[in-house]
């Protein structure tokens, strides 16, 4: 098991009389992509801010592993620990009147990196985030996706061990989202632990290794994604693609068969059926496909999506 890199112990935080977080206990392992899920106002960004020393907890302790088996308290070694993590904010966080390169070099200096190294590192980073063609463009003139990537670059100037991301794909179209995740995967592949706070459950479902579900300031569930899904979801998701793809008929027939379906979704490409008793539902569907003379392109059984887990946990 990879070592723990960040530990949160009994973290509580209030804003005035309103309690935002209460008794949060988390452990984030090195090299994983850790997702923090919650509804709006649940405290995700606050939790990230506490981990990044943007806020001070009212109670509890946050510690980072500097050396093996040696954890340093964030409140006592703030400036040293800040060199270990990078942060990408939800909104653009760079100097809009500086160019892309200038921004990266500027923040390199603020992280005490030598100038020459900063320049060299900037070139590498910009290439990584695919902004090398736009290095002399004023940041305010970048598109939304490019601005996001610049944020990543600024967060990575000092080669942090941990990267905190607050809603990294918010307001991005699907293409850009996909690009963003590809970059993040590249970053993670280099050994950087990534902690993401997001409401986009499908993305977190696809990319996170571990998740933490927060509701009303408390951790409802925390752990590896598969384990959480297994523990808290019932049934399976059946993904079917067939030709000619008369999914409406199949659905109607399934209902006639009084098949217990929790949810279904279909489009031109596939039919997705979520059923508690997945095997029975699968059996019936195969029968109906054969009956309707459909040709199966693929049929997959998957664990239910994270949003199902989320809904069930939050609903409870």
């Amino acid at each position: 098991m990879p070592p723990i890199i960040v530990k949160l112990e009994n973290i509580s935080k209030n804003f005035g009389k309103k309690q935002i977080l209460k008794d949060i206990n988390l452990e984030i392992q090195k090299g994983e992509i850790y997702g923090i899920i919650g509804m709006s106002g649940s405290g995700k960004s606050t939790l990230l801010s506490l981990m990044a020393d943007l806020l001070k907890p009212d109670k509890g302790r946050i510690s980072y592993q500097i050396e093996p088996n040696q954890f340093w308290d964030l409140s006592e070694h703030s400036n040293k620990i800040k060199k270990l993590f990078g942060y990408s904010f939800q909104s653009p966080s760079f100097h809009s009147m500086l160019t892309v390169q200038e921004n990266v070099e500027h923040f390199s200096t603020l992280y005490d990196l030598p100038k020459k190294f900063g320049k060299k590192n900037a070139d590498i980073l910009l290439k990584l985030v695919e902004l090398d063609d736009a290095k002399n463009v004023l940041s305010k003139n970048l598109s939304g996706g490019m601005q996001k990537r610049l944020c990543f670059a600024c967060a990575l100037v000092h080669s942090p061990r941990i990267l905190f991301l607050d809603e990294p794909t918010a307001n991005l179209d699907p293409v850009l989202r996909k690009q963003t995740w590809e970059i993040l995967k590249k970053i993670n592949a280099q050994g950087t632990t990534i902690v993401i706070a997001s409401q986009l459950l499908t993305e977190l479902d696809d990319f996170c290794d571990s998740i933490c579900i927060i509701n009303k300031g408390k951790v409802v569930k925390e752990g590896p994604v598969g384990k959480v899904k297994k523990e808290y979801s019932e049934g399976v998701e059946i993904h079917l693609k067939s030709i000619p793809g008369n999914y409406k008929k199949i659905i109607s027939d399934l209902r006639k068969l009084k098949t217990k379906i929790n949810r279904l979704d279909y489009g031109e490409d596939e039919l997705v059926v979520y059923a508690k008793k997945g095997e029975i539902a699968l059996h019936k569907m195969i029968h109906l496909i054969e009956k309707n003379k459909e040709e199966i392109v693929y049929i997959n059984l998957e664990q239910p999506p994270l949003k199902e887990v989320f809904s069930s946990l939050i609903g409870k």
């Binding site: 400036n79 100097h95 921004n103």
Partner: peptide, 13 residues
């Protein structure tokens, strides 16, 4: 400035 929050998290007093 949009960079203000980033300034917070740098190890700069």
């Amino acid at each position: 400035s949009t960079a203000h929050m980033r300034n917070h998290i740098t190890p700069t007093r």
